[in-house]
């Protein structure tokens, strides 16, 4: 009788512990915001921009034992989405700025980037050859909405009589440039590199690289303010990825060089 009671007690205990064990074993669910790919940029080189981010996200999620669901979004929606907590992680070539630091958490730097004007041969010639943003007057400039490039152009547009053409993605900005709907596009050099591959010589960089006014700096993954522990986990995963060469191999898969 006593033995039966002991067995029954053990069974009940095991049943009670099962949910807890299941909770411990289950991977955490993460909603990850990433850059949206536009149809016009649907060429292998252009896809590399988002594929690079996708590869990084997958590797990070494996390392932190998380089940990640990616949500491709326009850049402008990514910061608010992370800030609100709708997404727990954002990998979207986000430059670090003090203003953004107040809104979201930043992971360790992924790489560094600057911005540069891209123009067609015709537009560059029309505006007098080598064009500098500070000297540009009366031109139409395409920028991705919500980016640092957008903010920088907004700051000088009135004084320099610049017309801002807002886009959802860098691919869209390049497409508008190639179609002659804008004179220039201001975008991160790394994104421009991928897009120029498919431009077949019709567009090129012009003017010097820009770092000031938040146009250059380090690029990070971002997280909601309350996800401090997750940030630690992501940073640890990135350290491990750099330590065993995975990070470098992912970058080299999409670029023939390392420029982190």
């Amino acid at each position: 009788m006593i033995a039966h009671a002991q067995r029954l007690g053990a069974l009940l205990g095991a049943l009670l512990l099962l949910p807890a064990a299941a909770t411990l074993a289950a991977p955490r669910e993460l909603q990850v915001a990433t850059l949206q790919m536009t149809t016009s940029a649907d060429v292998p080189e252009a896809r590399a921009i988002v594929e690079l981010n996708d590869a990084l996200i997958r590797e990070i999620c494996v390392r932190i034992a998380a089940r990640c669901t990616q949500h491709p979004l326009p850049f402008a929606d990514i910061l608010p989405g992370i800030e609100s907590g709708r997404f727990q992680l954002g990998v979207a070539n986000v430059l670090h700025t003090p203003e953004r630091e107040r809104r979201v958490l930043f992971s360790q730097a992924l790489w560094r980037s600057s911005s540069r004007l891209v123009g067609t041969t015709a537009s560059i010639g029309r505006f007098g050859g080598e064009v500098r943003l500070a000297d540009l007057r009366g031109a139409a400039v395409a920028v991705v909405k919500g980016t640092q490039q957008h903010r920088a152009i907004q700051g000088i547009a009135q004084a320099q009589r610049l017309r801002i053409v807002e886009t959802e993605s860098t691919g869209e900005a390049m497409a508008l440039l190639l179609r002659g709907q804008t004179d220039f596009a201001l975008m991160p050099v790394r994104s421009a590199y991928f897009l120029l591959q498919s431009a077949q010589g019709r567009a090129t960089f012009t003017g010097p690289a820009l770092l000031d006014s938040g146009l250059g700096g380090s690029v990070h993954a971002i997280l909601p303010k309350r996800e401090a522990q997750l940030r630690q986990d992501v940073d640890a995963a990135l350290d491990a990825m750099r330590g065993d060469g995975t990070f470098q191999r992912i970058l080299r898969r999409y670029m023939p060089f390392l420029a982190d």
Partner: peptide, 23 residues
């Protein structure tokens, strides 16, 4: 080829624009 030259030139542009070099 001009395409290869252009591609290499893009990398030169990218490298010359890299914050580490600009800094």
């Amino acid at each position: 080829t001009p395409q290869a030259r252009q591609q290499a030139m893009f990398v030169v542009n990218l490298m010359a624009s890299h914050p580490s070099i600009l800094g």
